[in-house]
Write a protein that binds this DNA or RNA. Structure first.
Length: 200
DNA sequence: GAGTAGATCGGCT
DNA sequence: GCCGATCTACTCG
């Protein structure tokens, strides 16, 4: 299937993009091995004005500078010293919006994903949750700032869903963001097994 | 099944 | 020096 074009990512409306990314397919090719699946859960982080965003208030550091790139690249960072979290940078240049990919329904390279996660059978927790999915796809900081139309990591067209199949609820793990913690900027496919923990 | 501690490190104050 | 856009294992019931 066709990779999503740059124009797709450069929309100003990060919430609209977070929703539209559901059903698209995310793949990585690490050392020649292709793994990936269908995106079933996302969260929008609205750049400068969102307290939950790393770029809140225009913060610009070595870590966050990736978010200021033009939409269509990856933003990968280390969380809790252990987990790599994968985001899609969106918006035009210098608009640090990002969409966190939180859940993936695995379709390609299952055996390799199981191996990376040290699992023997397919269970939802293989790729449910941002830390888990990154590990399954072999995503680490080496992929930070990578072009999403490239050969190492990319996003393709996929399924499309109607609004009735999509849930919009508050984001996870951002209680510190005060009033912004309650915004329903987490999107997922209702009933999908690869949506992360706080379901429903 | 629910609740919680521990892992582990880079970024920021 | 503190703490996080998390996950797992282990406890208790």
């Amino acid at each position: 299937m066709a990779k999503l074009p740059y124009a797709f990512y450069q929309d100003f409306n990060v919430n609209s993009l977070a929703k539209q990314l559901l059903g698209r397919q995310l793949f990585t090719r690490i050392d020649g091995v292709v793994t990936g699946g269908i995106i079933v859960e996302t969260e929008a982080y609205a750049g400068v004005e969102d307290k939950a965003s790393h770029a809140y208030g225009g913060r610009l550091t070595d870590r966050t500078k990736t978010m200021y790139l033009a939409g269509g690249v990856s933003y990968v960072y280390l969380c809790y010293g252990i987990h790599h979290l994968f985001n899609v940078v969106t918006g035009p240049l210098n608009t640090p919006h990002a969409v966190l990919i939180r859940g993936l329904e695995p379709t390609v390279g299952l055996e390799y994903m199981l191996q990376r996660r040290a699992m023997s059978t397919l269970k939802p927790n293989l790729t449910a949750g941002p830390g888990a999915l990154s590990k399954a796809l072999g995503i680490d900081r080496a992929l930070n700032g990578q072009d999403l139309l490239g050969e190492e990591i990319w996003i393709e067209e996929g399924l499309s869903f109607i609004d009735e199949q999509i849930a919009a609820v508050p984001r996870v793990g951002v209680a510190y963001a005060a009033e912004h913690a309650l915004l329903p900027w987490r999107y997922y496919i209702k009933g999908n097994r690869f949506v992360s923990k706080p379901n429903r």
